[in-house]
Amino acid sequence: MKICIVKLSAMGDIIHAMVALQFIKKEIPNAQIDWVVESGFRGVLENNPHIDNILPINLKSIKKNKSEIFNQYKILKSYSKNNYDIVIDAQGLLKSAIVSKIIGAKIIAGFDKESIREGIASFFYNKKVHIAYDANTIDRNATVICEPLCIKITGEKIINKDKFLFSSSHVENLPEFFNLFVIGSTWESRNYPKEKFVEIADALKIETFVVCGSEEEHQKALWMQEQSEHLHVLPRGSLDELKFVISKCSLLIGNDTGPTHMAWGLNVASITIFGPTPTNRVYVTPINRVVKSKSEVNHYKLNKNDFSICEIEADEIVKIAKELLS
């Protein structure tokens, strides 16, 4: 069977969908699994033994140059020559549905119109999956990928998953024991205050590297480094190098964002800090814990002006961190 999964972005969503791969391979060991992804995120998928081909696309380039639509269409048409048995749109957006249709297959599967924000996307599928829009994000991703293949996914299977992120990189001079802080995200209201990250570092007294993905985050990390002898800025590298570093850390503490979710995919201890987003984006396990502000979250309309994450006390996170580190 030749399977093509369409999950274009973003990093955390791609990671949450990748958990399905190991279950497909257990049930259909000879399946060919290809994955269509925005080129900037291909590093997340690289080195996974269950993916046969990573098929990059750059739809974001169309925003800057409208004529790029023709180049991207040609790339997608070239992928259609692979003659897939099934294309699964795990994104549930109009653009991903169109991508799935262009690639084409006997079966094009995806969410039904009640299960996604852009319900029009479901008209492109001839096999539709229903799961509540406010259900756990990982359950949603695993279900939309596995159900069309007649593979049943349970919470127990997901909790007992094997790690599914892999790296071919090696980063030198890492200490034997160290923590990681992930301080950025796509919205400012999802970011835990830098001052409180410093409080956590000083309370734990463990060498800690700060992950930063933008220049703004880099400046914030430099400020944090100046405030605490335990904090150091992690030099920016590739996504493959980031996977390696996370795989070696003792504990990762971070906002609800892609690099934080990497810890879950690597079976590394983590604490995810939530403010305006729902905690059911993740699975809580003995080593993967969450801390949520007191604000209520509407799954259907997230409030980007909800800065309640700032009200979470550092002591609450320190307490959980000490439990995990012990």
Score class of each variant (00 low, 15 high):
Ile206Leu: 14
Leu174Tyr: 14
Arg190Trp: 02
Gly184Glu: 05
Trp187Ala: 09
Phe166Lys: 00
Glu176Val: 14
Val198Gly: 00
Tyr192Glu: 03
Glu207Pro: 02
Glu199Met: 01
Ala203Asn: 12
Ser189Lys: 10
Ile206Arg: 10
Ile200Met: 03
Leu204Met: 07
Val198Thr: 05
Ser167Pro: 06
Lys161Ala: 12
Trp187Gly: 05
Lys161Gly: 02
Glu188Met: 12
Leu174His: 14
Ser189Asp: 10
Lys157His: 03
Glu172Pro: 09
Glu176Ala: 15
Asp202Met: 11
Lys157Tyr: 05
Lys194Ser: 12
Val182Asp: 03
Asn160Pro: 06
Pro193Asp: 05
Ala201Trp: 00
Ile183Asp: 02
Lys194Gly: 12
Asp202Gly: 04
Ser169Lys: 13
Gly184Cys: 08
Lys205Val: 09
Thr186Ala: 15
Ser169Gly: 09
Ser168Phe: 04
Ile159Gly: 11
Asn173Asp: 14
Glu176Ile: 13
Lys161Glu: 11
His170Tyr: 15
Gly184Trp: 04
Glu172Phe: 13
Ser169Ala: 15
Ile158Lys: 00
Lys157Phe: 11
Thr186Glu: 04
Thr208Val: 08
Val182Gly: 08
His170Gly: 11
Ala203Thr: 10
Asp162Gln: 12
Val182Gln: 08
Val198Arg: 00
Lys163Thr: 09
Asn179Gln: 09
Lys205Cys: 07
Arg190Thr: 07
Ser167Asn: 01
Tyr192Ala: 04
Glu188His: 09
Leu174Val: 14
Thr208Arg: 02
Ile206Pro: 00
Pro193Ile: 02
Gly184Tyr: 07
Ser167Ala: 08
Glu195Gln: 07
Glu207Gly: 00
Phe197Arg: 04
Ala201Phe: 07
Ser167Lys: 02
Leu165Asp: 04
Glu172Leu: 03
Phe166Asp: 05
Ile159Val: 15
Glu188Phe: 07
Lys205Tyr: 03
Glu176Leu: 13
Ile200Gln: 02
Thr208Met: 06
Glu172Ile: 01
Val171Gly: 08
Ile200Phe: 09
Asn160His: 15
Val182Leu: 01
Ala203Met: 09
Asn179Glu: 11
Ala203Leu: 12
Pro175Ser: 08
Ser169Phe: 05
Ile206Asp: 06
Ala203Ser: 14
Lys157Asn: 07
Asn160Gln: 15
Glu207Val: 09
Ser169Glu: 10
Leu165Met: 06
Lys161Met: 12
Val171Asn: 04
Pro193Ala: 10
Ile206His: 10
Ser169Asn: 13
Asn173Thr: 11
Ala201Asp: 09
Ile158Asn: 01
Phe197Lys: 05
Asn179Phe: 14
Ile158Leu: 03
Gly184Arg: 07
Gly184Ala: 10
Leu180Glu: 12
Glu199Ser: 05
Val171Trp: 08
Pro175Trp: 08
Phe181Val: 14
Thr208Pro: 01
Lys196Phe: 02
Tyr192Phe: 11
Ile183Val: 14
Val171Glu: 07
Leu174Ile: 08
Phe166Val: 12
Ile159His: 06
Phe164Tyr: 13
Leu204Glu: 01
Phe197Asp: 04
Tyr192Arg: 06
Pro193His: 06
Phe197Pro: 02
Glu188Ile: 13
Lys205Gln: 11
Pro193Asn: 03
Asp202Cys: 02
Glu199Tyr: 00
Lys161Val: 01
